[in-house]
């Protein structure tokens, strides 16, 4: 992977979010809702912890990440710019990873608000740092997994709305499948629970970093990117 080419794609992708009202709307709404939740949680619990707020933010991303990722490839197909990327000396991995990191950079900007909460919490009480780190890690990995799935959905359809619906559908299934697992029981139940995202984020928000969960979320990210590359590959023939 060539750093210059990769960075060019990341940068273009990132700035594209600020070229449409949608980007600003998402940012504004996210800061507003996040801030409101934070205030609500802190004023109720009076606890110096960020786990609740991260849980809520992750839940918000379940709904909003499809809106952020839907354009990633669909728009290129629609505008005909896919042709430029595909006929430039870029590998499909450079294209896919570049776009992914571009979207993740936007996510970083969205998450800048949490630093304010962090400062507030740190000044409020004297929380353990490790749980905070675990909270952050879980939040980042989970949302980044959402994004990878969204990117994959975007490679499937030229229509952004369709891409958003597909990624929301997949995310929702991965979310609620654990509930189905609870009631199913047995081996199937265990399997469903394992596949569910929820069962892999809870520990992070309890302040525990379990490598098996890290592995699960990283695999989800890798699969999202891998299948995106495969879909683009198949489009050539």
């Amino acid at each position: 992977m060539n750093a210059r080419k990769l960075f060019a794609i990341v940068r273009r992708e990132f700035s594209a979010y600020f070229a449409s009202p949608l980007g600003y709307i998402l940012l504004f709404a996210y800061y507003l809702i996040g801030g409101y939740f934070f205030w609500l949680i802190v004023s109720r619990t009076r606890a110096a912890t960020m786990s609740y707020i991260f849980q809520n933010l992750t839940f918000i991303f379940l709904f909003t990440s499809p809106l952020i990722t839907m354009r990633l490839w669909s728009e290129e197909e629609k505008n005909g710019t896919a042709e430029l990327l595909k006929t430039s000396p870029l590998t499909l991995w450079e294209i896919v990873v570049g776009k992914y990191l571009g979207a993740c950079s936007f996510f970083l900007v969205m998450s800048a608000g949490t630093l304010v909460y962090l400062v507030f919490i740190l000044s409020l009480g004297n929380p353990d740092l490790l749980p905070l780190l675990s909270n952050y890690l879980g939040y980042f990995l989970a949302v980044m997994a959402f994004f990878a799935i969204g990117l994959f959905a975007s490679t499937i359809s030229e229509n952004q709305i369709v891409a958003a619906i597909i990624s929301f559908g997949v995310l929702l299934i991965l979310w609620v499948i654990g509930v189905a697992g609870e009631s199913a029981g047995g081996n199937l139940g265990d399997f469903l629970k394992y596949v569910s995202i929820l069962s892999h984020t809870d520990d992070f928000y309890k302040g525990v970093i379990d490598l098996s969960h890290v592995f699960y979320l990283l695999s989800l990210i890798f699969m999202g990117l891998f299948f995106s590359v495969k879909v683009l590959e198949s489009k050539r023939s």
């Binding site: 210059r4 060019a8 594209a16 070229a19 449409s20 505008n79 005909g80 430029l84 430039s88 000396p89």
Partner: peptide, 29 residues
């Protein structure tokens, strides 16, 4: 790909970019 310049049927341009930043982007890739 390194040897060709291609103008597709529909010009592959990003509407939200300025002409110069677009050309810089293409120069990079």
């Amino acid at each position: 790909r390194k040897h060709i310049g291609y103008l597709p049927e529909v010009p592959p341009i990003y509407n939200e970019m300025s002409v110069i930043s677009y050309l810089r982007f293409v120069a990079d890739i």
